[in-house]
Design a binder for these strands. Structure first.
Length: 577
RNA sequence: CGGGGCGUAGCGCAGUAUGGUUAGCGCGCCUGCUUUGGGUGCAGGAGGUCCCCGGUUCGAGUCCGGGCGCCCCGACCA
């Protein structure tokens, strides 16, 4: 491709809206352009990278027997009614001219299950893996980081159908390996961590994370065993604390704490530390009120509370309900004197704590010297708090958790029968029994991977693409277009490279060399071929984007040299599993 | 949804406190010359709904009211 005929709108100045390096570089390099918040145009260069990524995920899915199809983005709302997902806030909604409600697909479990329930009826038709690469629409509360979290984005989603859980496990493992191979081929170093299922639901699931400072997710990793988990999910072991004796602790006493609502305000006012405080979070699980207790310096993990009560949903109680239950404004709730029909759950850690401070269920007042079992009934103990760096590993005896930030690029789920039962996707087994199909689903953020690659592979000058996903393999830089001998050599080389099947961007623009070098570095094509003054000796210079050392190569041998170099670079990204 | 910030040429910004010539600067763009190994130099030029609507005023980019859009932080406050 000739740069003079291409569309390469690079920006010299940094767009004000971008914070993350990947976002900045993708905008500056002319890969993406914003149309609205979380809505992006993929410019030619970005689109070429997207297509490389798509090709990799296709090849790896096909390799394990997956079959590609293409589902509609327009999804009738009634289909989502069947699984109770039509009310999700994340959905973009619209109506047709007959006022029939539609949504824009945010994921496609219902659509694929609909196809399968009408077509798969026998155990003989499974295992089956269907997948697509398609635009997804999610009205995110806060899009950010360019295409890292967009409202319209490209996603690969695969769905598996099996007759039993052993078969699902085999399929799941095959796809898990395929994912490892995909990310290796893209040059994305991932870790696999346990995760929460969110709106997808179902059984066990894992996320593929890129460790990156700009990542949105908090990930905990054991320093000893291989355990890793999203902070949303990360379990903590019961520390089996022995309750301290209650004898000798003064009776609970009400103290005035005017306007002290937050943990910081209360500890400052009472001149104590947050670990002497017990927070009482009034929540609703499946609409029913519960009180959750965690230490003042800890965070309640909503998912853990939900799971502890086997609930479907969890939310904070609204201020008005809190006022009714505690007779106090938000900020002064406590476990002492709560209505007895409100169950109290407390984090394991609190079993080792007595003589603490809580809200008094009264405006501008807290209780000190509170003891569970004495001042209020012994709560139900559970793992409720969000894991932090320094906590004990839940899987091995000696491990300690450390915290990193991650970009979630893939998420694989064992769904089980959640969708097949809700939607009546049944098959007949060899004995003639009707059973629900056992499903799995597997997502991979294609456009997010573009950002992840840029986030992982860049330096001060621009992106450094792995050759496997680079928009071009080689950029051919003609230093001085008015120098006829340089021009001739460059034109000949360009023709030879095309002939040899090398993906080359030929920068034949009438620009100063500095502009071309800067642009080449910015857009990150892995191999740079410079046709400049070395032409006088019949040579060109070949250098890597990542290592600027020029290698003189005779012009006649350049193509052979490049082919070898490309093969060598590609070998670095061959999968190891 | 809460808090903060922003909206002026394609991009980055100044001007707004204290209303008043023809609304500026840098980059980019166009023309000519120049230069040709890391965003060249000189000269000339084009390009504006000052986010939108309404109001105050002799006069609004600037003041007032309403709306929209975009960015950041938080959304676990107890």
């Amino acid at each position: 491709m000739r740069a003079t005929r291409y569309f390469l709108p690079t920006l010299r100045e940094v767009p004000a809206e971008a914070e993350l390096a990947s976002h900045r570089l993708l905008l500056r390099g002319g890969f993406i352009r914003k149309l609205a918040a979380g809505v992006y145009i993929y410019l030619p260069l970005g689109w070429r990278v997207i297509r490389k990524i798509e090709q990799i995920v296709r090849e790896e899915t096909d390799r394990i027997g997956g079959v590609e199809l293409f589902m509609p983005a327009l999804v009738p709302q009634e289909l989502l009614d069947e699984t109770g997902r039509s009310g999700l806030e994340i959905l973009f909604r619209l109506k047709d001219r007959h006022q029939r409600p539609f949504t824009l697909g945010f994921t496609h479990e219902e659509v694929i299950t609909d196809i399968v329930r009408h077509t798969v009826s026998s155990y003989r038709q499974m295992p089956l893996v269907l997948y697509q690469i398609q635009t997804k629409f999610r009205d995110e509360p806060r899009p950010r980081g360019g295409v890292i979290r967009a409202r319209e984005f490209l996603m690969y989603d695969a769905y598996s159908f099996d007759t039993d859980y052993d078969a699902l496990e085999r399929t799941y493992q095959a796809i898990r390996v395929a994912y490892v191979r995909m990310f290796q081929r893209m040059g994305l170093p991932t870790i696999i961590v346990e995760a929460e299922a969110g709106a997808i639901g179902g059984g066990s699931n894992e996320e593929f994370m890129i460790v990156a400072e700009g990542g949105e997710d908090k990930v905990l990793q054991c320093d000893t065993c291989g355990y890793g988990a999203n902070a949303e999910k990360c379990e903590l072991p019961d520390p089996q604390l022995t309750p301290p004796p209650v004898e000798g602790i003064p009776p609970a006493e009400k103290v005035a704490t005017p306007n002290a609502r937050t943990v910081e305000e209360v500890t400052a006012f009472l001149n104590t530390t947050a670990d002497r405080l017990v927070k009482t979070l009034l929540m609703r699980v499946d609409g029913k009120p519960v009180a959750a207790l965690v230490r003042g310096d800890r965070e309640l993990n909503l998912y853990k509370l939900q799971h502890a009560l086997d609930g479907e949903s969890v939310e904070m109680m609204d201020a008005e309900s809190i006022r009714q239950i505690t007779n106090a404004p938000v900020g002064f709730a406590g476990p002492v004197g709560l209505p007895p029909d409100i169950p109290i759950l407390a984090d394991y850690e609190l079993r080792g704590l007595q003589d603490f401070i809580t809200g008094a269920n009264e405006a501008d007042a807290h209780l000190i010297h509170v003891c569970w079992g004495r001042d209020f009934p012994e709560p139900r103990w559970a793992d409720l708090r969000v894991a932090e760096a320094g906590d004990k590993c839940p899987r091995c005896p000696n491990g300690t958790l450390r915290e990193v930030r991650g970009i979630e690029v893939g998420h694989i789920f064992q769904l089980g029968v959640k969708y097949s039962e809700a939607m009546g996707a049944l098959y007949t087994d060899a004995e003639g029994n009707q059973k629900p199909i056992i499903m799995g689903c597997y997502g991979l953020g294609v456009s997010r991977c573009l950002a992840a690659v840029a986030e992982v592979h860049h330096d001060a000058d621009g992106i450094c693409f792995p050759i496997t996903v680079a928009p071009f393999e080689v950029v051919l830089i003609l230093v001085n277009p008015e120098d006829t001998s340089q021009r001739e050599v460059a034109e000949r080389l360009y023709a030879e490279m095309l002939q040899a099947g090398i993906e080359v961007l030929y920068d034949d623009r009438d620009e100063r060399s500095g502009v071309k070098f800067k642009d080449a570095d910015l857009i990150g094509i892995p191999i740079q071929v410079v046709v400049g003054r070395a032409v006088q000796e019949g040579a060109v210079e070949v250098r890597l984007r990542t290592d600027k050392t020029p290698h003189r190569v005779a012009a006649e041998q350049a193509v052979a040299h490049l082919q070898a170099l490309i093969a060598e670079l590609k070998r670095q990204y061959e999968p190891t599993v």
